[in-house]
Design a protein around this nucleic acid. Structure first.
Length: 559
RNA sequence: GCUUCCGUAGUUAAAUGGAUAUAACAAGCCCCUCCUAAGGGCUAGUUAUGGGUUCGAUUCCCGUCGGGAGUACCA
């Protein structure tokens, strides 16, 4: 039931269409006033009457019915109350029938969305700076799937550049096969850090030579590179598994090595390429941007060149409806340039490329720096969160079965949720105090609410069904209204590329449920109330689970 | 310098142009013979600044101040 549409269709205003009325309908600040409101101020000019008079007149002409039970005119607002009994009945029926597909839709059927996210660098361990792109991308992946889109998750590996020459140089100088095999990614990173602290001009040129050898297909250099890549992927896949992240493609920068020349040829043919200070550029001066560098003065390709090739490849391969790049706002200009160049090349689909920018992560004492070793590794954060969850379980619920599994769900949930709760554009100053806080607006709060709901439901022997014509009280109505809002929340999150909408929704619903839970006895309620409240509890559990699942967060039965 | 993003309680943040700006954390007080206290209740406390558009601005536009990011051969 679309209440806004229903109301809009019942209201007739001279020279104003139903569409316009519907878009004007808003939500009152508190539910004593009503469930929907129509501010009448903007109609004052057209009707040449005061908003107060208009509201009054509309009220008198509005016949209440089974759907809208009450209408009132207050200070130029026309307020509507919906029939709570009917709303409760339809919402509960829908949720209990649809279960884990409640909130999903087919709106994306037949459309493909590519999402470029996480995009790890080979030979570098995962630090907290990589968390946002990974979990935002991962959540968008799940949200779009839920809405029926065909989704292609792309890990655009950072596997190209002179740093790999440096790495090989460092390995040949100081490395030991067994040590690296055993120490994995961190052993590789140590070599890289050491190279950067000790390198002189001679070593730098050696590194450039090794990179050239990789490029020219030298056997030894490539074997080493592939080995480093293998160790990296082994390591990141463990983390992805914990975070519930999946990919459909690992085509990284190197993948586009042989796909850049056609782009360069096309740029030339379209007269877009020109020489400047020895380099080949696309001039973007008319668009207020610095030029997009395509080839360096030594003829080598650049980041932008590979992104142009990647965009064209993705369009040809997947024929996407949209292609998302979940990359920090640091690269705003880069994407603006790449998108503009594609537009100038005549690719009409350049409009479907979206840079989903998010804020940067820093430490309390400033920016992170891998080269200086000033970083917080993600695996340490995950482990600490799990440890804390484990300690709390041992203290509060030592007899819990599945203690370890529960601690994992709680700890990892806190890591993911912390990165998804605020608007993605906000910068984050990382602190252990914040991620390790398991109270208030957190995933732990939501999971705890689910555990409470589960506990209540498990105590009821036999079934329960939705009672007919039950009139919900204030707390129950608040939960019902929140439950009804879930499908629109998911759509909103997709439209804004903003998983925090879903995270905030989960906390909001949990808060309303907890207020209901404290105020209203469920199991010992009289008559229809017990059945109704059990259905409400079940529906809340289903919806909270659906919301957390979209974020990649699991829900323990008990905690 | 130029481009761009951000500025809301002590802190971290919410709020399709709508009514009395909403939560959490921290602070103070209260609630476990009662469905899980990782919970609930109460108290106190906020839109940087000057204009403009509007019946109405945290939201849109212009300026100022403060902060982040970017600004040619790194990614």
């Amino acid at each position: 039931m679309d209440y806004k549409q229903y109301i809009a269709n019942k209201i007739k205003i001279e020279n104003v269409g139903a569409e316009e009325i519907m878009s004007a309908i808003a939500l009152p600040p508190n539910s004593d006033m009503g469930d929907y409101a129509l501010p009448c101020f903007k109609f004052a000019k057209i009707l040449r009457k005061s908003p107060v008079a208009i509201a009054e007149e509309l009220k008198n002409n509005f016949a209440t019915d089974d759907v809208i039970s009450e209408v009132s005119a207050v200070n130029g607002y026309l307020n509507f109350k919906v029939n709570k009994s009917g709303l409760a009945d339809s919402v509960l029926n829908r949720i209990l029938n649809e279960g884990d597909s409640y909130g999903s839709s087919r709106e994306g059927a037949g459309k493909t969305i590519c999402i470029d996210y996480s995009s790890v660098n080979i030979a570098k361990p995962f630090h907290i700076g990589h968390l946002s792109t990974t979990v935002i991308g991962g959540a968008l992946y799940k949200i779009y799937k839920f809405l029926g889109y065909n989704v292609v998750g792309i890990n655009h590996l950072g596997d190209y550049g002179t740093q790999f020459g440096k790495l090989i140089s460092a390995y040949k100088r100081w490395g030991d096969r067994e040590e690296v095999q055993k120490g994995g990614i961190h052993a590789i990173n140590d070599l890289y850090v050491r190279f950067n602290t000790e390198a002189d001009e001679k070593m730098e040129s050696e590194a450039r030579e090794y990179f050239r050898l990789i490029e020219s297909g030298d056997k030894e250099a490539n074997e080493l590179f592939e080995w480093f890549k293998e160790l990296t992927l082994e390591y990141v896949n463990q983390i992805y598994k914990k975070l519930n992240i999946t990919f459909d493609s690992y085509a990284g920068e190197r993948f586009y090595t042989d796909k850049m020349q056609p782009i360069i040829d096309e740029l030339k043919a379209k007269n877009l390429l020109k020489e400047s200070e020895g380099a080949q550029i696309v001039d973007l001066e008319p668009y207020g941007m610095s030029p997009c560098l395509i080839l360096r003065s030594d003829g080598a390709s650049l980041y932008a060149t590979r992104d142009l090739a990647a965009a064209v490849y993705r369009k040809n391969t997947y024929d996407f409806y949209k292609c998302l790049y979940v990359v920090a706002y640091q690269q705003n200009l880069h994407f603006k340039q790449v998108f503009k160049v594609l537009e100038l090349m005549g690719k009409e689909w350049a409009k479907d490329l979206v840079h989903v920018a998010y804020g940067m992560v820093s430490l309390e004492d400033g920016a992170m720096s891998t080269r200086k070793g000033k970083v917080v590794w993600l695996e340490d954060v995950i482990n600490k969160c799990i440890e804390k969850a484990s300690a709390i379980i041992n203290e509060k619920n030592p007899d819990l079965v599945n203690k370890e599994e529960t601690a994992n769900l709680v700890g990892i949930g806190a890591v993911i949720f912390g990165a998804l709760y605020n608007n993605k554009i906000k910068d984050i100053v990382f602190s252990y105090d914040k991620v390790l806080s398991f109270e208030g607006e957190t995933s732990v709060y939501v999971q705890y609410t689910c555990a409470r709901a589960n506990s209540v439901l498990s105590k009821r022997e036999g079934g329960y069904k939705i009672p007919q014509n039950y009139s919900p009280n204030a707390q129950e109505s608040e939960v019902i209204k929140a439950l009804a809002a879930f499908p629109a929340t998911v759509e909103d999150a997709a439209e804004k590329y903003e998983p925090s909408c879903v995270a905030r929704y989960a906390v909001d619903l949990a808060q309303k449920f907890n207020k209901f839970y404290i105020e209203c006895k469920i199991l010992t309620a009289e008559g229809d109330a017990a059945d109704f409240r059990l259905c409400l509890t079940k529906a809340t559990l289903v919806t909270l689970k659906n919301a957390l699942t979209l974020l990649g967060i699991g829900v323990p039965e008990k905690m």
